[in-house]
Write a protein that binds this DNA or RNA. Structure first.
Lengths: 191, 191
DNA sequence: GCCATTCGTTAACCTGGGTTAATAAATCTA
DNA sequence: TAGATTTATTAACCCAGGTTAACGAATGGC
């Protein structure tokens, strides 16, 4: 299980044998039922996770109580509310498992150990963050420039493998419209 | 001029005297007229900059040719198309100086030198990226949850010092609506 | 397999932003 | 200062998405 993470990390940095062993020691395995929360809104995110199996969604609750699904992560991806994790602020988004999910997690302090003690620890932190940043900025650009219809098409393209695992209303939320509107979009596109 | 940057960097990491001296050597001073481009769309962003004086806007051009202003940076802030800079990809946004602007710049390679040779170089890169990431994710959240009216109010709040330096249509673009719509919003709020 | 629940679509009506164009105000420029 | 240009507002009309509610379809639990 930890080997999947070590493989993933090895794409980014070199790991010594001791470092690999440390990873095996320090990451804890957690399992969640469908519907359970990896992180609740308002909590400080004190752990970063690597999803071994399953899927999570990021849930943003509006002032009026409506829940929006703004992102997904699946197996072989990291999951964390990084903003909350970094500055120990209350999380604005919840992270909910939408399938039975297994996540291996590391605490904030242990991750700082990786940053500090691994030969390329800081670099690992930087590369992860750079990846997340580029992803976030592309999303901003898409929200600025693309109509819902185009964002829907892009979603179906980029997340095609996820689609069969997702209800329609998570997708409509991600795209930024309500379910009836997504239905209309799908109807328009059907022609 | 470089001392401003050194001050700024010192908020994030410790700098030795040699490191400070290296910064003075390697950052080059560039000046721009109002309207000139720090970076054009399609170019690879090969330099990161620190704005000593003036202001820039980030310009995203839609498929239909319309220019959107999606962000601003002013004096004492960094400017860079980080996504392009990181992976040497063609920039999707231009960076235009909207006032007479002075920027001190560092090349990609020299910045890698900082990452590699400064005692806390990797940490500096990580912290900058973390800051940018948190900013980007907050923007995504705002685009998802806030109506244009609310985003306008937030802009007026957060960027209040910038407002007198900006034309209305940059603000409307940033908020995500067209000028007539921003006029309507302002009219509604006037009551 | 049956019932209850959840989910996706559709219809009718509403609303707020887009579009276009005209006008007024502010800014530049010579 | 006058004239040209740019910028901001307004009006009229259009349209896509929101809202609400109804109705099937799919799903889940027992």
């Amino acid at each position: 299980m930890h080997e999947l993470l070590i493989t993933q990390m090895s794409y980014l940095i070199r790991l010594s044998e001791e470092e690999k062993e440390w990873i095996r020691q320090v990451f804890a395995i957690k399992t969640y039922e469908k519907g359970e929360y990896f992180l609740r809104e308002g909590q400080v995110c004190r752990e970063a996770g690597f999803i071994v199996e399953g899927m999570v969604r990021y849930v943003l609750t509006r002032d009026d109580g409506e829940e929006l699904t703004v992102d997904f992560n699946k197996e072989m991806e990291y999951t964390c509310n990084y903003a909350s994790f970094l500055d120990k602020s209350p999380s604005e988004t919840a992270i909910q498992c939408i399938e039975p999910t297994t996540i291996i997690v590391i605490s904030y302090d242990d991750l700082q150990e990786i940053y500090a003690r691994f030969a390329e620890g800081q670099k690992f932190g930087r590369l992860i963050c750079e990846f997340l940043y580029v992803q976030a900025i592309k999303k901003v650009q898409s929200l600025y420039t693309n109509e819902p219809e185009k964002r829907y098409l892009q979603f179906m393209d980029v997340y095609s493998t996820l689609v069969p695992r997702l209800p329609q209303y998570y997708i409509s939320s991600y795209v930024g419209v309500k379910p009836p509107s997504l239905s209309r979009i799908r109807k328009r596109l059907a022609k």
